[in-house]
């Protein structure tokens, strides 16, 4: 139950793109077409879960016992960069069709703050399941990463639909292009605010 709460709160209430502003660059850059936004989201979900799967144990079993918590930033970004490279090479070698559809989005992900953000938040957010744990436990962290990725995908897909409509509209001259897209993102984000409070009443958990 609490795991489901974490998952849905990451997807709807704490949506990484529209509420926490992480991963705005790909959100604005790749959301013009539906298929590219789906490809990008799939790649992000994959890398988020994978990097959390590696960074959480590294932090818990390597950095914390040695008193090196302050190195989390450097080590996480390196792990993400290496993982993205590995995934790219592995995909190209073993699953070429998947590489063709996902591969081109992978290099964009290394410097995506949503991925580093989710790994950092996982070791900072207090655990819901185990009150004695200093931060999310491993299953919680993985689920949180999955939820963040799915939330990213949801926002991308919804927004690519919104953008198709914007293409047809004619805004005032200085607003053409990116500015009107941002205003549209503002309205999309407004709609996501409607979800706040929903989960607390649904699951009966107060955060």
């Amino acid at each position: 139950m609490k795991l489901a709460f974490i998952f849905f709160s990451m997807v709807l209430v704490n949506n990484y793109v529209l509420v926490k502003f992480l991963g705005i660059c790909p959100f604005l850059g790749v959301s013009k077409k539906l298929d590219s936004s789906v490809g990008m989201s799939a790649a992000v979900i994959f890398v988020m879960v994978l990097s959390t799967a590696v960074t959480w144990p590294v932090y818990t079993y390597l950095l914390v016992p040695n008193g090196l918590e302050y190195l989390n930033n450097i080590s996480f970004i390196l792990i993400i960069a290496v993982l993205v490279q590995l995934v790219e090479i592995a995909l190209r070698k073993f699953i070429p069709p998947l590489y063709k559809s996902l591969g081109i989005y992978l290099p964009l992900i290394t410097t995506n703050c949503a991925v580093l953000g989710v790994t950092m938040l996982n070791i900072e957010t207090p655990s819901l399941i185990d009150p004695s744990a200093p931060y999310y436990t491993y299953p919680e962290a993985l689920l949180c990463a999955l939820g963040a990725g799915v939330g990213f995908g949801l926002a991308m897909v919804i927004f690519s639909g919104v953008r198709r409509k914007i293409e047809l509209a004619k805004p005032p001259k200085p607003f053409e292009g990116l500015p009107i897209t941002l205003v549209a993102a503002s309205i999309t984000s407004l709609s996501f605010m409607g979800f706040s409070g929903l989960l607390e009443s649904l699951f009966g958990i107060v955060v």
């Binding site: 529209l18 509420v19 926490k20 502003f21 005032p172 001259k173 200085p174 607003f175 292009g177 990116l178 500015p179 009107i180 897209t181 941002l182 205003v183 993102a185 503002s186 309205i187 984000s189 407004l190 996501f192 605010m193």
Partner: peptide, 25 residues
């Protein structure tokens, strides 16, 4: 209050960018 909530951020940023484009034109 909406101005300091996420939607306000997108909106103000969009307006600032439009202003920059307007001034440059």
């Amino acid at each position: 209050t909406v101005a300091i909530l996420p939607p306000g951020g997108f909106f103000v940023f969009g307006c600032f960018m439009a202003l920059a484009i307007f001034l440059e034109t």
